[in-house]
Design a binder for these strands. Structure first.
Length: 420
RNA sequence: GGAAGCGUGGCUGAGUGGUUGAAGGCACCGCUUUCGAAAAGCGGCAUGCGGGUAACCGUAUCGUGAGUUCAAAUCUCACCGCUUCCGCCA
């Protein structure tokens, strides 16, 4: 959500934002609705004013005859008011629905482009793994080592179902424990949030109204969150935060549910694209300063890069193009890990900042040192997704005999240095 | 699942139809006093929207939504949330 005043004063910017994000949103439609809204509001408020004034006179009037006459007069005003209020309400409904579709303004540094194919590589780390044998893909490797069971996974869950078994399960716990320690050292408070969330939280983060098809819903109308970002942001909804605690840093750990509607032909095999997975997610709330947002955005992304570096997996970082940005995102980096068998990098992390786009929707505010109220800024970045991280880990660290070396930093959590 | 109660500003807590955006207290911010501090005294202190250069004016907001009424924090209904008791259960 953007400030309507800002939209009015910067309609060209909003128009450019929609174009850059390849959104069909038309700012002119909103501005017309807004003019109507203001006109109706002014007229309704005028009538209400009249009513309030008269009501005050009625309440001090002692003479029953005069009083009765006044009340009768007010009946007429009320009829008029009811009609005007109905008109206002329908304009408001249209206005609100349009307001929810306004895209946030992307940063100047965001490149043009239609899809993830046009994201710009800004960094490459590590040597691409060379094998003196024919490497296997993660399906074969993990199935052979009984780390994963896709057949029974789809028997029980259906398409995209999987079981992590034995070493696959233990390795996941090792990663989670290591990540908890790694990010804990960087000032993040670990949180286990609820994942069954009210829909309003998805509106808050900006996932709705855009992506309705992507969510599993319960019979009570709640949604299963696709990321801990949702409950972590909802956590402070309607609160006035103490600015002394900024930046607030949370490390959420949660199951993540994605219907993957519309991606049926993509990544049909393996652990890249699944309906449920676990993710550690970094979320930050900070003061309303662009500079601070930018600084923390770099920091968040760097945290995950350093985490991957400590695992010694080759990666690259891309700057996402306009068409690959979410509605509320100002700028985004993706971190992609090298997948040897596919011969390409695959996304495992996404770092973005939103300015006050989300906090406006969630009504998360704070007072500055002068007592003035502001919406906080929000940011988030994947810390580590499992099992997706396993794909590149097992493929990169496989050996000729089909066993897998455990990254050094994980060994103390995994208990062994080889998966065999 | 059954029963009862509750939901007011940053916090606490009055307020059951009429000049109530809402008493009192705490916290916070000024000033007085003090060498300084504490204490005390005086004053200030909600947010959104619209208008105005501004002082300010109008309007809305007492969990949410609908309703009754000339008028709702106050009455009615629904929903949401919380608390307590009983039952059930991982």
């Amino acid at each position: 959500m953007l400030d309507i005043k800002f939209i009015r004063e910067n309609k060209d910017l909003v128009k450019m934002a929609a174009e850059k994000k390849h959104s069909s949103f038309d700012v002119e439609t909103l501005l017309i609705a807004d003019e109507k809204r203001i006109a109706m509001l002014t007229s309704v408020e005028g009538l209400r004013g009249e009513q309030n004034k008269m009501n005050n006179s009625i309440s001090v009037e002692k003479d029953p005859a005069i009083r009765g006459q006044m009340i009768n007069e007010m009946r007429l005003v009320k009829e008029d008011l009811i009609k005007k209020e109905e008109d206002l309400k329908s304009v408001m409904t249209e206005w609100q629905s349009l307001m929810l579709q306004v895209p946030n303004i992307p940063d100047m540094s965001v490149p043009d482009g239609d899809s993830d194919e046009e994201n710009q590589e800004i960094k490459k780390w590590g040597e691409i793994t060379n094998f003196d044998f024919e490497p296997k893909d993660h399906l074969d490797l993990m199935t052979n080592l009984k780390m994963v069971d896709f057949e029974r996974g789809s028997k029980v869950h259906g398409f995209r179902g999987y079981y992590l078994t034995g070493a696959g399960a233990i390795l996941s716990f090792a990663i989670w424990n290591y990540a908890l320690e790694f990010f804990g050292k960087r000032g993040f408070t670990p949180i286990l949030p609820p994942v069954i969330v009210r829909k309003q939280n998805l509106y808050g983060t900006g996932h709705l109204p855009g992506d309705v098809e992507d969510y599993y819903m319960t019979q009570d109308g709640d949604a299963l969150a696709g990321t801990a970002e949702v409950p972590l942001m909802g956590m402070h909804a309607d609160e006035i935060l103490d600015a002394n605690n900024f930046p607030i840093k949370y490390l959420g750990f949660s199951p993540c549910f994605r219907r993957e509607a519309g991606s049926h032909s993509k990544d049909v095999k393996g652990l890249i694209r699944v309906h449920e997975f676990y993710k550690l997610e970094q979320v930050i709330l900070c003061e309303a300063s662009h500079t601070e947002s930018v600084k923390l955005h770099e920091e968040l992304n760097r945290n995950t890069e350093e985490f991957i570096e400590s695992l010694n997996i080759p990666y690259r970082t891309v700057l996402n193009c306009g068409g690959d940005l979410g509605q509320g995102q100002v700028k985004k980096y993706d971190i992609e890990l090298w997948i040897p068998k596919e011969g390409k990098y695959r996304e495992i992390s996404s770092a973005s900042y939103f300015h006050d786009f989300q906090t406006r929707r969630f009504n998360i505010r704070y007072r500055d040192s002068e007592g003035k109220m502001h919406y906080a800024h929000s940011l988030n970045c994947t810390a580590i997704p499992t099992p997706r991280i396993l794909v590149s880990m097992v493929e990169n660290f496989q050996q000729a005999d089909g066993t897998i070396k455990v990254p050094e930093v994980l060994q103390k959590y995994f208990g062994k240095d080889i998966i065999s």
